[in-house]
Each structure stands twice: as C-alpha cells, then as structure tokens.
Design a protein around this nucleic acid. Sequence first.
DNA 1: TGTCATGTTTATCAAATGATCAACTTCTCA
DNA 2: TGAGAAGTTGATCATTTGATAAACATGACA
Lengths: 319, 319
Amino acid sequence: MAAQDSFQDQTDAPDADEIEKITRAAWHYYNDGLTQNQIANMLGTSRIKVSRLLEKGRQTGLIELRINSQFGGCLTLQTELVDAFDLVDARVVPAAPDIPSTPRIARAAASFLSQKLEANDLLAIGWGEATMTTLRYMAPTFQQANVSLVSLTGGVSAYIGTTGIYGPTNNAHLIPTPLRVSSEELAEMLRVEPYVRHVLEMAATARYSLIGVGSVSNSATLVRYGYCSAAEIELFARRGAVGDVLGFFYDADGQILDLDLHRHVVAIQPGELSKIQNVAAAAGGSEKVDAILGLLRGRLANILVTDEDTARELLRRVG
Amino acid sequence: MAAQDSFQDQTDAPDADEIEKITRAAWHYYNDGLTQNQIANMLGTSRIKVSRLLEKGRQTGLIELRINSQFGGCLTLQTELVDAFDLVDARVVPAAPDIPSTPRIARAAASFLSQKLEANDLLAIGWGEATMTTLRYMAPTFQQANVSLVSLTGGVSAYIGTTGIYGPTNNAHLIPTPLRVSSEELAEMLRVEPYVRHVLEMAATARYSLIGVGSVSNSATLVRYGYCSAAEIELFARRGAVGDVLGFFYDADGQILDLDLHRHVVAIQPGELSKIQNVAAAAGGSEKVDAILGLLRGRLANILVTDEDTARELLRRVG
DNA sequence: TGTCATGTTTATCAAATGATCAACTTCTCA
DNA sequence: TGAGAAGTTGATCATTTGATAAACATGACA
C-alpha cells in the first residue's frame, strides 16, 4: 500500500489568496499582453514572483489553455475515430516524440471533462495513472463547478487522499477498500457492505465517467502497484486477455474473461458501467493499442482521449 | 453607412490548414512546454513562423486562456454583483489602468458565452461596439460548436459582414435593415416584413443573448455612427434617459421612455427581450455606470460582464 | 540559545522571444 | 512584359523570461 503514496500530488494546491493573485497575473499576462515586470509593479511584488505565480497557475490547471479548433481538440483524426468506432466523442492530442504521453492525454481529458461537466454533476472515476493525472488537472474545476466524485472501484482513495483540493463543499464518495482483496469471500462481503453498495449504486447514476485502460504486460500499472503478479499477467495473456478496465480483463473483442481475479475485485460490475451514458477512456501508447481496440470493440467506453500516434494505429488496425 | 466599415475585422480568419498548424503549435507550446525552436523543427518550419502562428491564434481567439478560478472569472466582486442586483451570473475583469477596457470585457464575455453555449444553440445579439468585439473573439467557437447567430436589431449586418468567419454550416440570421430608419411608417413596414418578423421571432427563442449598453453622451456609439444627433441626446437626457439598449432609451429605474426615436428603430421590443432566459450585457467604464445601473434596476439584463472599477462603483452606488 | 533543516526571496545569467527592418515572392494593372 | 503594390518570409537585436545558485528568513528541536 505504501507504494501508492507516489500517487500523491507533487504541487500543493494554492490557497484562496494565491488564486486571486494568480488570476490577476494571468489576466494581465495572457489577455492584456503585459510583461511580467509591468504586472509586478501593478501588484506590488517582484518580477520573479509573478513568473512563479504564472507557472503555478499553469501547473495546477488554474490557467487552462483551451484550443477552440474545429472539434474542440485537434485533428481530423477525431472524427475518424468517432466514425470508425461509433463513439460519442474523441480527443486526439498531437504527436510529440520524446515527451511522455500520459500527462498530455490527461490534460486533454481534463479539458474535455471540464467542458462537459455542469454544476452539481457527478463524475465517476476508475483506477489508474491516467485517471489520477487527469483528476489533478481538474482540481480547479471541481471547486469551481461543485462537481462531486464517486469511485467505480476500490483503491481510489489512495490517490484522492484526504487533502481538500476537491473543495470544501464537494464530496468525494470513495470506496474505502483496496482494488483487490485476498479472497473471494472478503470481496463479496465488501461489495454488499451498505456504504460500499451505496457508492457503487451512486456511481451507476453518474452522467460522465472517466476510466483508464490497462495493458497486459509486466509493466502494467496493476503489476507495478502489486495488484497482480507477473505470473498472473502471463496466464491472463494466454487466456486471450488484451487489456483491463477497472480490474476486469477482456479479450480482443472486448468480452470480459472469466477469471478468478475478477471475483477478488471490489468494483462496479462491467455490465453496470455501461449504464453510464458517457464513459471516457484516457489512454495512449503503442503498448496499449490492443487494449484500446478491445475496449472500443466491446463498447466498454464511448469516448476516447488518446494521442495522435495511437489514434493512427487504431484506425489502421480497424480499417 | 460607410462609417460602419470600421466595424470590420482587422485580422483575417485563418483557413483550415492554418488552424491545424496553430493548434499543433499551441499544444506543444502551452501544454508541452516546448520552445518555439523545438516546435519549428518538429513542424518543419522556422522559429519566427511558429511565433507568428501562436500570435495569430491568440488574436483570433483560437487559443483561449481560461482561468478556472472560483467562479470562472476573477473576483469576489462577481458574487457581490450577483447578490446586489439579483443576477444570474457576472464576470469582472481585473483593473488595468491605461489599457482600453472594451476589448478586455469583450474577451471575458466571449469566454463566458463560449463556456455556456452548447452545440446548435442560438445566440441573439444586439448592436454596439462591445458586442462586435465579443463576436470577433467568439468566431472560433461558432465554427466549433455550430452556434447560430440571430440579430435583435437592425444595423448588425454591417459588422457581421459577408465573410465566412462564422463557419460554413452556421447561419447568421440578420435583420437586413439599419438600426434606425427615417420614418415611423417605414420602421413599421420593415418590422412586419415577413423575413424581419421571422428573425425577430426567432431571436426571442434564443437561450442566450448578448447586448451592449449605451451611455447618454455625445461620445455614445449611437452618435458616433450617426444614428442619433447630439441635440437628440441632450433632449433625451433632459427627459431622464441614462442609457439605451438596442436603441431604446431608459431612465434611472430602467423604465423605457416614450420617445419618438423608439418608433423609428427596427429591433425587438424591450418587452420581448425579457423572454430570453439569459441576457448578458457587456459594458464598462465610468461614463457607463449610470446606464448600467438603470439597466440592472430595470432588469433589462440578468448577466453582467464588466471591469473591476465599474463593478466597485456600481456596488458603491447601490449599497 | 544555538544549530540544523526547510522554505522563501533575491541576484545573475543564458536562453527564449517578439519587434524591427530588409529581402523576397506574388499578384495586379498598365 | 515589367513596374509597382501588397503581402510573406527571413536575419538581427533588444527585451523578456526562467533556471541556477546564493542569501535570507523561519521554524523545529536538542
């Protein structure tokens, strides 16, 4: 469990006073086109301080760059993806070799969701790195729009933490269990536990959900966080698994496999997930192409946020 | 009429190919944190070109800076305004001496509306400089979300022009007449003209509308564009006028005055305007405080976008 | 109280950026 | 065809900016 500490935020959230300053600085810098020096004079502070305020604003997602092109995102690939896989929507971030794609995809996912979520909406979230990173970028939106979080699986509380970054009035309804427990019996007991049940039922009522996609490899997040052993992964692969959602492995057609593991997972049932109107998957990278293909074929998600290279590969493979 | 040419855009809209490039460059620059040199290499162009693409993106509103603070805008003043005048929402841009406030307010208004408007929505627009500037910043949004425009008054077509900046599929339903015509009879004839009538009826069904606020002074836009003479303005002032919406002058309580002029105006009737759920007024400056106060007291608008100084003055005067 | 550790501010400097001006291309009209 | 206008691209340079490291303040703890 200790390993999950690395899920915590690296930048701490700015307080109200700082938000005010960042907002002011950002306005003058980006909208008014003033120099940092001029802003420093107006705000009665030093130039370097302004520089840092802006940097912090960008990091935390308080300052968001929105690109208003054709379809909100970037490329014609988006429409092609929507058509090819019969999706509700898609976002494709431009290719950028040598830059890790997860944070970029997370940025796009955060931007997408921020745009779609309305005041007092409920966002259901799964487990995984992409999900976590996306949430971090969305923190300011949660405060602003009073969006509540509800978890689809156990193991989420570790990276939501007890910090108040999701605002004072916002509730985060999390399942207070690990993603996987040691026995089938325990898992069942937890699933019927009133509070857990309540959260899972609530999750099914969300208008939007955000999930990650796991690949079937030794470097999968599930393995790195100790939820699965490398041996298990190999076994699943031989059984035809190409990826996982919420801890459930599926084959190339997106059919959930019948695995012991699945009875050890504390999460919403995949069948229940499809009750949610908009299921957005955030994932990219060549190692995840198989997993994403299966996911989309099995209609386990209807919105995809990915990167350009992955999108091209998906379209090549499906065409 | 020729005077209205100055309403035209100064920056021409980028074409599809350029939008693609700008989008790519913007992603790498703002989201990935690359330098313009690196981007130039990736895109196979020169550094200076990238610099210009980014500049153009910012100018046209394609690249939009969104500040996700407390209430989407900036300051606690926003909540105070909402409370004091019983508004639906408010946006306040931070004070910046020596910078003209109209474009800044327009930016904020554009950002606000872009956020609120949904696909296939209809936006009703009035006449005036602030409205025109706001629309310019919103051009990319119109293309993206397929929002249609409908005019609340005559005289709008002059600044919408025949350019395709509002997208190929987007319709702009404009009243093809001046704001004011020379006789009462002509005005009435135009108002009952089927097409004009159709547009006005359509306008009343819009979910959002954007209007400017005119002050009662010789420097008012109405005077500068020749719709009113200085003598008329003086007369209106003596009759108690503090401002105008859509060419209709009202007093300090926001009651529309009974003026000959009003029978010469080709526009939706003020009573009809209030059928629109969300009426956003974009205006600021010390010379407009009286006009805005009257507007809000008479509930002629329920959303205000203004600047910090004006907001403070409004609150001082009402308190 | 002193010392160490932590975080914050301040100076310095190299890198990055936008403005200016010159060169070039493209198009128009005689 | 060629001169001229209008717009686009490229080079140079001053300004702006963020990174680095040093100084400073702050607070915990022996």
